[in-house]
Structure formats: C-alpha cells, structure tokens
Design a binder for these strands. Structure first.
Lengths: 257, 257
DNA sequence: CGGTTCATTGAACAGGCTCAACCTCAGTGG
DNA sequence: CCACTGAGGTTGAGCCTGTTCAATGAACCG
C-alpha cells in the first residue's frame, strides 16, 4: 500500500505509510469543535480520516490576508476559530465587504482557478486548509461531502441576495438593524449568546459591508442608543434592549424612534 | 416495472409504461438550442433521455410570475428562450432585482423547501421544468450533472459578489456602464452580437437592479448619449459608440465625459 | 507619557431622490 | 382618420439622506 490516498482505501492504522515529512495526525478532524456545523458535518470516522490526511491547520493574525483576489485558488478553507472578512476592491481603493465568516463557515470557492475576492482576518483566525486537488479526489469518493458543499454554497447565495436587497434598497438605519439581526442569528446558529451581540469588526468594516461610511455607521448606532433600542457594552459589544423595536426597524417599519 | 421513475432504471423503450396522461417526447432535450451552455451540457444521449422523461416545457408571458418568494420550491427551471428577472421585495413594496436570466441560465435553487425570491418574465419566456424530486433521483445517478449545477451556482455567487460591489460602492454612472458591460458579455457568451446591446427590460427594472430610480437611470443614459459614449437605437437598444470610454467609466476612471 | 488607531460628533456639501410636468408611442374605438 | 387613453420615458426643480471634511475624544501600548 504505497500511498494511502489512492482509491484503494487506506486501513485505519497507516501512519507509517504517510509522507515522511510529517507525522499525520488523524485526530484533528475528530476533535474539531465546529465539525457539526461545517462542511465536514455528517462524515463517518472513516471519511474524516481521509480528510485528516490532506488537511493542514493554519493561524492568521488580525489584519493579515488569507488570500487575495486574483491569487491561484489552490485551497479551500474551513474557519475553526475567529472571524474572517471577504471583500472586493475597486481600482481606486473603494472596498465592498461581501461577508463575514465565523467558525464553521468555509471559504475559497473559485470559478476560474483564481479567487474572486480577498480574505482577511478580522481577529486572530484558525483555519483548516484543504488543498483543492486532493480534496476533490476525496470528494469524488464521498459524494455527500460534495452535496454538503453545494448546500452551503446555496445558503451563501441566498445570503448574497439578501445583502443585495439591503445594499440596493434599505436605509442606513435599516441596514444597521438588519446587520445586528444577522449577527444575532449567526450567533444563535453557533450556539452562542444572542445578547449581547459580539461586534468583533470595527466601524470601517461595518461601513464597507453595509455600503455606508464609518461616520454614518457611528451616527446611526448612536441614534439607536439614544432611542433606547440598544446599549453599548465593553469591547464594543451591543446589548439589544428592545428586540421588537430592532426587528421593526430592520423590516422597514418604524420611520422614527 | 410499474413505475419507470423508481431507482430501478427504466429501459430505453418504455413509453407504454409512462403516465397515461401524455406521450413522452424523448426529443426535446436532444433538440434543445441552449443545451451546450445550460446545466444539461456534457450529458450523454442516454442521460438526456432520462432527463427528457421528467422535463416539461412551459411558456410564460411578459409580466407573469414563474414562481413567487415563499412558494414551495417544487421545481428547477432552465431558460430556453426570453428573459427572466429575479427579485426580492420589502414589506412596503421596495424591490431589488437580483438578476436577469437569459437562455441557458437556470433558476429555482432553494434552501428551505421554499423559493427565496420571485421570478417573472421580462419578455415571453420558454422554460423547461424539472420537478425537484425526480431530478434529484436522476442526478444521483449522474453525478457530473450535479457538478455542473454546482459550477453554475458558483458562477452565480461570483456574480452576486460583483453586484454587491456595484450596489455598495459604485456611482450611478458606474452602475449603468457596468450594467451595459454585463449585458455585452452575457450576449457574447451566448454567441449574440455585442453591439448594439439589446435592452429587453424597462427603465424601472434597470433601476431596481442597480439600486437607483427610473429617473436617475434615464438621466444617466441621456448624459452618456450626450457624451457620445452610446446611442439609442429602435427598440430601446443601445449602440456602444466608445467602448473604451464605457470600460473606463465602469472601472471608476473618467469622472466627467 | 506621547503616539497611534479607532470612534464620535459637528458643519457644510452633493449625489441621487421626490414630486411633477411633459413627451412619445401604441392601441382602441368612435 | 383622429381623439382619447395609458404606459413608459425624459426632463426640471427642490429637497434630503448620507457623504465629506474636520475636530475632538477614548482606548491602547511601547
């Protein structure tokens, strides 16, 4: 059994047959804290082992790039800790953040062999990295992993359509409220407290996500604070004081208040 | 063989075992004029036959809905003629068009059993309709059809990200120019003339796609006409007179002119 | 501490919106 | 044949939301 990654399935105990450069750790995927909500959900221990053979862990510090638009799209990534922002730039530097990623989310889908957007750490990030080619080989063996990837891409597409509605048609106040609700439901999905809402990104990032300026974001948040809908906690986190009010604002009702 | 659509694959000649209501036409997919650029590209005649068993043709008139947001997502569709718009609404009627679809494009992906957006005919549309459940059965047999669907969804996602950049960060002039370039490249991909550009949708639709108002769309087009970048032809089609100028405007260069 | 980054607030500005009038054109019916 | 109608498109005038420019405050850190 020269290569455990060929179609002849490797036995469960094959560390001695691994590439000599490093000892393969079969455990990281088994121990993965976000597996159940990631692209790796529903995999059998057997399948996880094959994944573990090709995966490498990676850490990225705040403000550092994971990859940049136009880079060769050599890998897919799964966020296991921290927060990532995805963005596109115009030649003159205007920036649009297309999404924030949290533990369990994946990134790296590309259409033309190249990434269509840049990815950067909002706070210290832990990732697992799947080199594309061997990953595809594994997924060819396990179609339901491909199906899972497809489901997650579909969810991303739906989120992108919501964001288009926000960017094209909502007011600044509605955008901020919608954003807070997004963070709440994202936290809920990951089993984290919905209140207070953690806001790991700075005002500039929020602005570039919502199609506004930092000043407008700041002013709008201040106004909602003044109105008693939210309150600011330490660390810049947001305490939602009037959930119904927030929901109403996001839905486009409640012009004042 | 009571039902040819069970997992036991139907033989090649089974029209007598078909539902009595209508004679199955094995040809429509073989004759399909957009197959090569659709989700059905690269299928073998054998696979096409199985598709043909579940597909039904459909026609939708201008202004009529194909489905609406919240409907049960029972089918996927492939556009074979005409133009479709996809959109989302806010409770007060504000509308964001998330995309225009042309022959070869597909629609109907859904996340929760329900469509997340509405689809309507911009001009008379011809569709082929794949009921979801039998389609998934067929795709389970032919994984590369699933792969093709995944590729097209990825392309859609990339387009959505471009659109977010447009909606969040581009000026009205840049949006119009980008839109015209989009139509050009879409026409090119389908082997249609790039100039003049056909504009089958009205000003209101363009506005709701670009996050503007009809007035701003109209004024901006008039300004570009005055500047000699474009000219209007009959049918509302647009003749691009200065392609470099249009490219420059879309890229954010050229503040005046 | 001094320096740097991020957030907040103020004042003036402007791009695109709102409201409104008018034009064109296709269809329709007297 | 022409008047009438209605929808879509264009243009104008004034306004408003969010931007720009600028100053100040707050937190962090070597």
């Amino acid at each position: 059994m020269a290569d455990p990654r060929t179609r002849t399935l490797a036995s469960k105990t094959a560390p001695e047959a691994a590439p000599p450069k490093q000892v393969i750790d079969f455990d990281p995927c088994m121990r993965c804290n976000v597996r159940e909500m990631s692209v790796c959900a529903d995999l059998t221990p057997d399948e996880l082992e094959h994944l573990a053979e090709i995966v490498t862990d990676q850490t990225v510090d705040t403000g550092h790039a994971i990859f940049s638009e136009g880079d060769d799209a050599g890998s897919l990534f799964n966020v296991t800790g921290g927060v990532v922002k995805l963005y596109k730039l115009l030649p003159d530097g205007r920036r649009q953040i297309t999404g924030f990623l949290f533990p369990g989310d994946f990134l790296g889908l590309a259409v033309n062999e190249q990434y269509g957007y840049s990815a950067e750490a909002v706070e210290p990030v832990k990732l697992c990295r799947f080199p594309r080619v061997p990953l595809e080989r594994v997924m060819d063996r396990y179609p339901h992993m491909k199906a899972r990837l497809f489901t997650m891409a579909s969810n991303e597409l739906a989120a992108a359509q919501d964001q288009m509605l926000l960017l094209g048609r909502k007011t600044a106040r509605e955008r901020i409220a919608s954003f807070l609700l997004q963070l709440q439901s994202s936290a809920k999905r990951r089993g984290q407290p919905v209140n207070p809402v953690r806001l790991p990104m700075n005002r500039g990032d929020i602005a570039d996500f919502l199609g506004l300026t930092t000043e407008t974001v700041s002013r709008t948040i201040s106004a909602m604070k003044r109105a008693g809908v939210i309150a600011l906690r330490e660390g810049g986190n947001v305490d939602v004081r009037d959930q119904d009010g927030l929901d109403a604002i996001a839905a486009g009702e409640r012009a004042e208040a």
